[in-house]
Design a protein around this nucleic acid. Structure first.
Lengths: 143, 143
DNA sequence: AAAGATTGACGGGTCAATCTTA
DNA sequence: TAAGATTGACCCGTCAATCTTT
């Protein structure tokens, strides 16, 4: 049943390409200035409040378990996080991940770049009205 | 200089995760119903008006040349597109890509799924006011 | 059997180098 | 030298299978 949703499909395309493009730019800035990909930055940021079980980290970041496991491999090889198997006696299946001092310091440095990038590439030109509207729309679309 | 942009950073996160999540859902629907990943679908759609040089396709899809080249390899192996080297005598470096009959038919079928997915996952709950607001915001942020 | 987590195999993207033509 | 396009090497993510523990 073709209706006048051609406009909406175009908006959907614009939505996707804008998000993809902006994320790529932020990613590149973090790599250029800190050799830290955006997704690594996000893992470090999620661990900042304190150590976390892998499954909690997984749920919080909305990632597939195997992808996160692989990324934790690389983060650990780079000395940014630490895995501790069976940290408590009550469940020996669990693995706890925590930030190393180096990981914490790198996050802090990279966060300066990150906030600057988000401000300049995304938030700079948005009025309070824009903010409110976008918040409303994302609340609807994100279900 | 920490200001009250915590709200804006949160909005940025919401923007990214919503876009990523929705794209993943549309991708999965296309794969489930047509074995056609979203990015393959986009290439076929871009070729629908007619054959295109690789560099034009590249610019239109905003992709890195090598990534597109690899994807065209797979599309060609699956019989969905056709590459013709040096199609005109005026520039023997050019390669022209065109849809095969199978590629065109598959795009048509998949487009039904695509439009339904965009409608149900994204556009369904958006009012005309939402559409206008989002269009305005994307115009500012995308530049 | 199910949950937490990891691994093998594989598809896919990206940089730098390459080849050819302009 | 530069443009159009592809390739080699490498990184990354995902599925299905696996291992251990519950």
């Amino acid at each position: 049943v073709p209706r006048l949703d051609a406009e909406r499909v175009a908006l959907w395309r614009s939505f996707c390409s804008t998000a993809t493009q902006l994320q790529r730019q932020v990613d590149q800035l973090l790599i250029d200035e800190h050799e830290l990909p955006l997704r690594w930055f996000e893992v470090l940021g999620a661990l900042r409040p304190g150590p976390s079980r892998v499954r909690d980290l997984c749920a919080h970041l909305d990632e597939v378990a195997s992808s996160l496991s692989r990324r934790l491999d690389r983060l650990e090889q780079h000395g940014l996080v630490l895995r501790v198997p069976a940290p408590t006696p009550d469940d020996k299946r669990a693995v706890t991940v925590s930030l190393t001092a180096e990981g914490r310091a790198l996050w802090r440095d990279a966060n300066v770049t990150y906030r600057r990038a988000v401000q300049q590439l995304f938030a700079k030109r948005l009025t309070d009205t824009d903010i409110a509207a976008l918040t409303r729309v994302l609340g609807k679309a994100g279900s």
